[in-house]
Design a protein around this nucleic acid. Structure first.
Lengths: 113, 113
DNA sequence: GTAACTACTTACCGTGGGGTAACTACTATA
DNA sequence: TATAGTAGTTACCCCACGGTAAGTAGTTAC
């Protein structure tokens, strides 16, 4: 096992860790929406056009378990729940930016042509 | 619809385009493995430890259709097939780098602790 | 009193992503 | 003749991801 193969194996393992966290149709969109500021359940549902309350609730829980977002309950009337990014969540911004940059590039290269 | 909401909607659409291309357990690992140089079917199978030939074949086809990789057949004996990144594939390097950077950060913050 | 808003939860269901195992076809080597 | 290496393909199966629809619980406005 040479240096290159070793480095490749290492990176593959890291990529699989990341995929476990961001896999699925909705997690990246949710995190992305929260980079625009803290949001409530209903706001997220409106922003992410066709997500169902079931999926939103389920994915928010998963993201909370992975310490990407925080759920804050305000005991006002009516009850208000706010979701926000943790520092770890904020640390995804550069990753999200690169996804958007590449996405724009991809759109130009493949989708249009 | 204010400026912020509009920007959010736009970015959400782009992120969903990207997800369509990189979704699944194997596509990012395959592209990542190919950033280390052109590889043959068997090499990829060995590098990506537990991928089955069926999944590898299937995902390579999908990546080829999306112009991320190229399949080159050499008419030698025995027949040799080489997979390589297209310019579009190479353009994913920064995105992959950010994934790896964040993955290392995530590992430090969540997995270990 | 009833409709609507908050934030969900629960039940049910279908598709397809992904896994396993075996098989194909050709060549080289022992 | 048989075993191993090239690069896949095919058949079969399962479960989980995700969708739909309806229900819950509390408050507010009409």
């Amino acid at each position: 096992m040479n240096q290159k193969t070793h480095s490749c194996q290492l990176k593959l393992r890291v990529s699989r860790d990341v995929l476990e966290v961001i896999q699925g149709k909705w997690r990246l969109p949710i995190v992305l929406a929260l980079t625009f500021g803290n949001k409530r359940f209903g706001e997220l549902q409106r922003d992410i056009a066709d997500i169902s309350p079931k999926m939103l609730s389920q994915e928010l829980k998963a993201l909370e378990e992975n310490k990407i977002i925080t759920r804050t309950l305000y005991d006002s009337m009516p009850v208000v729940v706010e979701y926000s990014l943790t520092p770890l969540g904020h640390s995804m911004k550069k990753l999200l930016d690169e996804i958007l940059i590449w996405g724009a590039h991809f759109r130009k290269e493949v989708i249009k042509s």
